[in-house]
Amino acid sequence: MQKIIPCLWFDGNGEEAVNFYTAIFPKSRLTDTLLWGDVNPAKKGKLLTATFELDGQSFMVLNGGPEYKITPAISLIVTCETQEEVDYYWDKLLEGGGQPVQCGWLTDRFGVSWQVTPMPLIRMFQDKDAAKAARAMAAMMKMIKLDIATVKKAFDGE
């Protein structure tokens, strides 16, 4: 069992979020649910928590109510090796009302912030040639959805 499990607070739509996320990521599944009981008669029988896996990583949703909101101060990073992966996750996570932000960040329809991160860009940013790395970073900073080929051209000085 995973020692640390991120918990995402929702206001009644946690089950919808779990269904949305598990439909996007491979090797994903619902692993456990807990329903409200007699302690809250108005919500009795409705989802209180759900534990689920996205590509093997465990998460929990809590239908805690309107007291707290998800903010971009915490984001989930999706690492990608290819532009096809970037395009897939970007498009899927935006479905149903998500909003693109900047530099590979987006907010999904539930308010959760995601970073769709092409690992080839990270490797360019870490290159020992500071000028090449700086050109790559400058190109990326102008983007909303990240484009590996465009950043690679800047990296190569084209």
Results as ranks from 00 to 15, higher is better:
G104C: 09
C80N: 05
F10H: 04
A73E: 11
V18L: 01
L8S: 03
L47S: 00
G104E: 08
Y88C: 02
D147N: 15
A73N: 11
P41L: 01
P26Q: 12
I122L: 14
F110T: 04
K128R: 13
G104L: 06
E84D: 14
F59L: 08
V151P: 07
K69E: 11
A130W: 11
N13E: 13
G14D: 03
T117D: 14
L93R: 00
Q115L: 12
R109D: 02
M1I: 08
D129I: 15
A50G: 00
P72S: 10
A133Y: 07
E53L: 10
N19T: 13
M124I: 09
A133P: 07
T82M: 03
M1F: 03
F10N: 02
A138H: 09
F125L: 15
A42L: 09
L35G: 02
Q102P: 01
L8M: 11
N40F: 08
L94V: 00
P26H: 09
M137A: 15
S58F: 09
W90I: 02
L94D: 05
S113T: 15
L121F: 11
L54R: 00
T51G: 10
G37M: 05
F125M: 15
E16V: 06
Q57P: 04
L47K: 00
G111L: 13
Q99M: 12
G37D: 12
E53T: 12
E85I: 07
K3M: 06
P100E: 13
P72R: 06
W114K: 05
P66M: 03
V78K: 00
W114S: 04
T49K: 03
G14N: 06
L47I: 05
V101R: 14
K152N: 14
A133Q: 08
S113V: 09
T51W: 05
F10Y: 04
N19S: 10
P41C: 04
K132C: 12
N13M: 06
Q115W: 09
D127A: 13
F125I: 13
G12H: 05
R135H: 13
